[in-house]
Amino acid sequence: MDLGSAAAVSLAVRVIPCLDVDGGRVVKGVNFTGLRDAGDPVELAHRYDEEGADELVFLDITASSGERETTYDMVRRTADQVFIPLTVGGGVRSVGDFDRLLRAGADKVSLSTAAVMGPELIDEAALQFGSQCVVLSVDTRRGPGTASGFEVTTHGGREGTGRDTLAWVREAVDRGVGEILLNSMDADGTRDGFDLELIRAVRGCVDVPIIASGGAGRAEHAVPAVEAGADAVLAASIFHFGDVTIAEVKDALAAAGLPVRPPAARAPR
């Protein structure tokens, strides 16, 4: 079964910062030194690109649908200046939303609550745009009443659904999802490390890439997450507050013998 994994070892483990945006502005204190505007997504994206981020995730938490245009504009401005992959999620409810984000310059779009409510959105998006740009964001927590013990939640983890997480990710992959952003609500905010049990369980039932999210507190936490089956690790606050840098995470991965893309040596902008 170990189909030439030695040959696959050159694919780098991705290290991904996640930025929460509201009305086209980054929220939840980003604490880099030397930023002219800590709320400017373009400046932050540049900064993370320079630090060696392999990809960027924007999570749009804009409450008012009337302000969605600010999101498209933000994606446009970012994609115009930062040439690494960009995933945008949050509030995507239709193929039309999906199309607007791709045309604005997103490479991938993540679906969450809307896909749980109407899974055919996955089929439609995968058919029209290809599985490679359809990401399923799963917020999951432990709870009774599901076969695996992991329950899908919606609305940013606030509402339980009674759905089994493993059954849901299997269905989503069958419907055409090309990647899973796996967020453990139990580990989220603990800074005790990624939810290895959850990662192993999901790795055991799907063969698309998994981005581990929730629980990162130290650079070394990335290593067991990858060993458990994650292809990428995502974090927000530890990067934003400068507690841990992208380079430190990559150093920890490299020290464990895992492939990483070294940050490019480049002249200051």
Binding site: D2, A12, V13, S131, Q132, D231
Partner: peptide, 13 residues
């Protein structure tokens, strides 16, 4: 492609 995880997604040499 013949690999355990597909798509082949990310940075490679």
């Amino acid at each position: 492609l013949q690999a355990e995880v597909l798509p082949h997604m990310g940075w490679n040499t």
